[in-house]
Design a protein around this nucleic acid. Structure first.
Lengths: 396, 396
DNA sequence: TGACTTTCTCCAGTCACAGGACAAAGGTGC
DNA sequence: GCACCTTTGTCCTGTGACTGGAGAAAGTCA
């Protein structure tokens, strides 16, 4: 099958494609209400898009009291690939042009295996999705990696937890292997874009999206666009110091947030508590599997284990302390908490909220929702699809 | 004299006005090199601007090997007023259309006297500048106030150090009194705009501008534009916690940065040191005037006083600790330090730099200049002129 | 069945703009 | 002093973008 070759020829067409992506099928008249163009001009641009095959006319809509309208929709065969490479697992999903997830696979994988091994697996997962009949091919792919990225080139830079990835031409390599356009970004930014597109952050212009997983990062959205910083490392809040001369961190400094709270730190603290017999619940689980993860802590907390709850509260306090500072600085309209540890749920959220509402200025917190992400592991892959569709649905 | 009544009719004209503002007089040909318009279209727009009187043609430039060009410049009679209302003093300046300061007055004034008294003084200062022959009237004014502002309406909101200002319609009131358009913003944002226009931050897209005066604030510039946050309180870093359960702060919390370092905190610490006889230099100065300010500490430090140097270093460390976090989060291309305490100079800067370079990630600090502002007290007033000119030099 | 609404197409006129021809005004080399 | 080149600026025409109105198509409602 031929894949998407055309691109919008001008800003109007790009605008129309995005409206159709975000609002679903629409009649010409409905589109006209949203774009401030005359009906004639709009008709011309829609016709051109129909010619390119990017959109199709399918059927008549119900009448609204007059002539029935033709439904215009994005080409139903368009498929985007969203790839979210985490520290310990990979998510791959196919979406249609409206960014609805048609199929989603998750597989464990250690990112430290290096880019070659990881991409081999990504390609296998993509092939699996294709083989299942969900897609005949991919028109574009958006990839998230757990570290800073030089965005224009799609190349990771100095990633702390990804030895072997520094400078690897991810965009170029995957674009060749997949045979479609590829965009690469930080996984946290992808999550922010996902929650913005289909989650809790719809219609919020300026917000923060804190992802707590193996590490801690923060997606920054300014005026609806992801802010990446001068060298692509914006949002790297895991190594903000929360305790002068505190715990040693893997980065070489002392007292970093990540040294106190993250998937890894939480697991370590839980194992220590189990070892010292401070928590029967955790000890039992430790004896069962020989190791503990954030999931065990969440389960223990759900079972009412005091030590587990304390661990979560302590971590939430540390995180809240940092977020409070960021709220004062950035004055967002929303804070989203997501990532692997969201399973810790409301205990975590309550601790974070307490810190932020107590420490930040009333003007900044007065009307500030702090909520859990609503998409879970799909946020990243939807964000990936969104990233590449934003790219493809912009003037060539 | 009739003041500026016309506004640019379209984006091209606005672009041309800003080019003339930032680059000074230019020929049509030179303008054409910068705007990506055909010479014919450019000529049409320039002619229209000439008709409105916003720009004038004055004289012929030297030949560059061919026909001599006509110089096009902004109307020489245009005058902008920049007003920077600080906690303890007011700066007012007149600029021409190129935002060059023609006259500048500073007078002490306690902002707690309330808006009516303050604006009476501002109007008197403006009248004085006008009487000196520098301006026959003002075409626009940009005002900075030391607290958060609801920007679109030009109204201070919940300002901590400005009782009586909450909700006062600054923009509307001053616009009536001055008889010209007025824009209002946070004083820190004005400083950032000033340094961006004429200071160290020229040609930097994303940067932070930390102002340490009576309080501590931070101007945030994203992609060349000031970022103000959801409720206008972005950059309010003075109340970020640097010490859990630390010193009581005026805001009601404990351990805020401002409780440890700001003009006020520094003066208090200095007086305490003088009182306890820990610093002969400061004691002498205290006996002379009965009180101490940041200026005294700076002088003592310059004289080699160890206690004064320690105070500055300690404050710089605290501030650097916060800035380090912001650098990790925001990944700016430049950090500017300004405000009243810049007189503390390189001792302060060195302490801040040490903290930031030590705590933030190498990727964020690798190529990050941390410098003192270059405009001093004129940054704010130039920023004010810039604010209103940006407004007036945009399509009506 | 007629009046009215909504949707969509067609067409003519207007405006924005590019690009070439040309004029004006200077420099340079012989 | 003259021919020739460069630079600047103006004029003019053709093209494409865009608007708004007329009208056709296709429906609803009384």
């Amino acid at each position: 099958m031929r894949r998407m070759t055309a691109r919008p020829a001008n800003a109007h067409q790009a605008r129309l494609l995005r409206l159709l992506r975000d609002g679903g099928p629409n009649s010409r008249a409905q589109l006209g209400d949203q774009v401030d163009l005359s009906r004639s001009k709009l008709a011309v641009e829609v016709d051109r898009l129909l010619e390119t095959g990017l959109v199709v006319a399918d059927g008549l809509a119900a009448s609204r009291g007059g002539r029935r309208s033709h439904n215009i929709r994005l080409a139903p065969a368009l498929r985007f690939l969203g790839v979210d490479i985490g520290a310990t697992s990979i998510d791959v999903a196919v979406t249609n042009a409206e960014l609805e997830v048609l199929g989603h696979i998750n597989q464990p994988m250690d990112v430290r295996e290096g880019p070659v091994a990881v991409f081999e697996q990504v390609l296998a997962m993509a092939a699996k999705l294709r083989a299942s009949g969900l897609a005949e091919g991919f028109d574009g792919a958006g990839i998230g990696v757990p570290g800073p990225v030089r965005f224009p080139e799609g190349v990771p830079v100095a990633p702390p937890i990804m030895p072997g990835w520094d400078g690897f031409p991810v965009r170029e390599a995957l674009s060749q292997d997949l045979g479609c356009p590829v965009m690469v970004d930080n996984d946290v930014n992808l999550m922010a874009m996902g929650e913005q597109h289909a989650g809790v952050a719809r219609s919020v212009g300026d917000f923060l999206c804190v992802k707590i997983g193996t590490g801690i990062g923060c997606g920054i959205v300014v005026g609806g666009d992801v802010y990446r910083g001068t060298t692509g490392s914006a949002g790297d809040i895991g190594h903000i110091q929360v305790e002068p001369d505190g715990r040693a961190c893997a980065c070489g400094n002392k007292g970093c947030l990540e040294a106190y709270f993250s998937g890894a730190a939480l697991a370590r603290d839980a194992e220590e508590a189990a070892h010292h017999g401070r928590s029967p619940e955790l000890s039992t689980r430790f004896e069962g599997s020989g190791r503990l993860t954030a999931v065990d802590v969440a389960a223990a907390a759900a079972a009412g284990d005091a030590t587990a709850l304390d661990l979560i509260r302590a971590g939430g306090n540390r995180t809240g302390q940092v977020i409070a500072g960021l709220v004062s600085f950035f004055n967002p309209g929303l804070v989203v908490i997501g990532g692997g540890v969201t399973g810790l749920g409301h205990t975590l959220l309550a601790a974070i909220r307490t810190q932020v509402y107590r420490q930040s200025l009333p003007l900044a917190t007065g009307n500030l929702p702090i909520v859990l992400g609503e998409l879970g592991p799909t946020a990243g892959v939807i964000g990936g699809a969104r990233l590449i569709s934003d790219h493809l649905f912009s003037p060539a």
